[in-house]
């Protein structure tokens, strides 16, 4: 029998895209799509153990006051689960070890990178080796961008995708690895999942097609297993054609392009590969 897909959508402390992300999981066919407040994890009322698809939605964890998701990452690293004699990070690492999928979007991606989950080379998930920082423009921007998928990527979320169009809504989306060596590892292992490109799919560093000046136009990366994936653009913001900025003038499929990311996750968990 196919696996049940139990999606958890984590919220609290400034997260704000949980509703549409849960809706995406639901539309994609997840059996459960629970919005869980982080306090429920910290009080042991809900356990990551009960899920196999962790969604880290966009928002402003702690206002991004110390840099995007920095204080949020600090909480994941240092907060104990009350009454469980365990730290939250330990529970998270167990979730990864069990092969659970993690999707981080925008602030969720920032959180994954600042924690060290991504790129998470050699399975070291708690050492930060890259960052997402201020856009070259120095400003927050909401605009739609084209993304070219890397077909060689091991990412399970992007299978079958080539060119997609999603909105970015961030002030800190410029990806910078700690060193040239780290960048080479990311590139050589095909961990780059999406790059900013023009409408025809040519990768670009030109603003505003590349909205933040990201290194190698990187918009999203995964880890070596392809099960942990983060991206700055918001697939959950494009679930229906009417979300598209030009839906009143273009012929579009009823389903929005963002749904594919979630459908891939669901299909993967249901498959024998999981």
């Amino acid at each position: 029998m196919a696996n049940k897909v139990n999606a958890i959508i984590l919220t609290g402390n400034g997260t704000n895209c949980e509703m549409e992300m849960a809706h995406a999981c639901k539309l994609a066919g997840a059996d459960r799509h629970d919005i869980v407040h982080i306090s429920e994890l910290l009080h042991g009322e809900k356990r990551l153990n009960d899920y196999n698809f962790l969604n880290l939605p966009g928002g402003f964890l702690d206002g991004d006051d110390l840099g995007s998701a920095k204080a949020g990452a600090n909480r994941f690293l240092h907060a104990p689960i009350s009454g469980a004699n365990e730290m939250l990070i330990e529970e998270l690492l167990k979730f990864i070890k069990r092969g659970g999928l993690i999707l981080g979007v925008c602030n969720g991606f920032q959180l994954m990178v600042k924690l060290g989950l991504l790129p998470g080379m050699n399975g070291n998930y708690t050492k930060q080796t890259s960052t997402l920082t201020f856009n070259d423009s120095g400003r927050f921007e909401d605009r739609w961008v084209y993304l070219k998928a890397n077909k060689q990527s091991p990412c399970v979320f992007s299978r079958g995708l080539e060119l997609v169009y999603y909105p970015v809504r961030h002030g800190e989306g410029k990806f910078i690895p700690e060193s040239a060596t780290m960048l080479a590892q990311i590139e050589n292992n095909n961990l780059v999942v999406f790059r900013y490109c023009d409408a025809k799919g040519s990768v670009t560093m030109d603003y505003p097609l590349n909205p933040n000046g990201s290194t190698n136009a990187i918009a999203g990366i995964c880890n070596e297993t392809g099960r942990l994936f983060g991206m700055m653009p918001h697939p959950e913001a494009f679930l229906h054609r009417t979300n598209h900025p030009r839906w009143t003038r273009e012929d579009l499929t009823e389903e929005g392009q963002g749904l594919a990311i979630f459908q891939n996750a669901v299909a993967f968990i249901r498959s024998d590969e999981f």
Binding site: D142, R143, H234, N243
Partner: peptide
């Protein structure tokens, strides 16, 4: 307009900027 998030919550249908070039 661009510096405001006008799409969070996933229900954006007619945005502040529309047309062939948004």
């Amino acid at each position: 307009v661009r510096q405001y998030d006008h799409e969070v919550q996933g229900g954006s249908i007619i945005k502040p900027m529309v047309g062939a070039q948004n």
